[in-house]
Every structure is written in structure tokens, then in C-alpha cells.
Amino acid sequence: MNGFTAILRRDLQLAMRQGADSVMVVAFFIVTTTLFPFGVGPEANILARIASGVIWVSALLAAMLSLERVFQTDYEDGTLELLTLSPVSLEVVVLGKVVAHWLTTGLPLIVAAPLMAVMLNMDTDGFVVLMIAMLLGTPALSLIGAIGAALILGARRGGVLVSLLVLPLYIPILIFGAGAVEAALLGMSATAQLQIMGAILLLALAATPFATAHALRQAME
């Protein structure tokens, strides 16, 4: 646990000091969402209809944008090599870095999402479910994305590659995340979708740190 908090504190401090990461992710999210009204027109009912999907897709892209950097800088300056040699197990290191990534990107997105929901004219019935769904979904995005971020270490064109690897794996979260909000907007219970998202999160939490650590060990060989 000590190793976990140490990694978490270190990554958060680095993020605070450089600062720009969270702001950039949120800015990207807002700008992307803003593009949709230009594409489909400003009619309020159309925007309300597509709001949940647009917010989820933009959040997916924004979360993915910062993935490349989760391990890249540590890989380049050799920190990762020291971390693999340290007595702390690599899975714990991975978990610490993923939590840091979620706190710096996922959490700001959850805060920004209702704002965009208002601008897209989404019905207020969906807000609470949107927040809960994102609370369950974004950590899973970080966890799954970390696998992709670890796999591409040392590859050419890593940034484009990570999106090609990770986006197909994000599809279930998108389906159930948007589905939950839509159910709530139709006045139905979103419990089933939220439970599935919880299951996905737990599964990802249990399985992905091992896959990511395995990929990191391969990169270090």
C-alpha cells in the first residue's frame, strides 16, 4: 500500500507541477462537444436526442488523448526501469499510475460533463445518471487504456496506434454509458446498465493491472 500511495503522490505532484494536462483534456472535451452542433445544426430537440452519445464519445476521445503519456515519459527517462526493479510489485505501480491518470483526467471530465449536457439541451432527468455512469465508466477507461499505453512503448507512431488499439475495447462502456442516460431520459430505470458498468469496472480493476504489468515487463526486456 505504501508503494501505491508513493506512486500516486508522485504522479499527482508531477501533474500539478506541469498543470496543463487536466486543463487540456477538459478543453479538448469541451471543444469536441461544441463541434457537434455545428455538424448537425442547432435545433434543440436534435441536440437533446444525441446529447448523451456525444458526451460519451467526446469523453472517450479526451480520456484517450492523454493515455500515451501515462508510461511514455517514465519509459524514456528510465524511471520505469527502476520501478520494475523496486520491491513494490509492478501491478501496484500500475494501479497507482492509473488512479493518478483517472484523478487528473476522468474526474475533471465528470465535472465538465453536466455543463456540456446543459449546452446540448439535455433533459435534467438524465444528469444524475450521467454523473453516476461516468463515475463508473471513466475509471474503466483509464484501466483499459493503460494496457494500450503499455503495449505501445517503444513503437513508432505510438499516439495513433494507441487509439486504434484501445477504442474498440471502449465500445461496451460507450454502449452501456449512453444507454443508461437514455433509459433515464425515457423515464425508465437505468439500474441494469449501471450494474453492467459496475461489473465492467470490477472486471477491469481485477484483470487489467496484470495485463498492463505484463506489457510493461515486455517493454523493459
Partner: peptide, 8 residues
């Protein structure tokens, strides 16, 4: 994605 990764 697999093919792109393997060749990268």
C-alpha cells in the same frame, strides 16, 4: 489494431 501493433 493487432496488425498495426505487431508491425510498429
Amino acid at each position: 489494431g493487432y496488425i498495426a501493433l505487431v508491425n510498429a
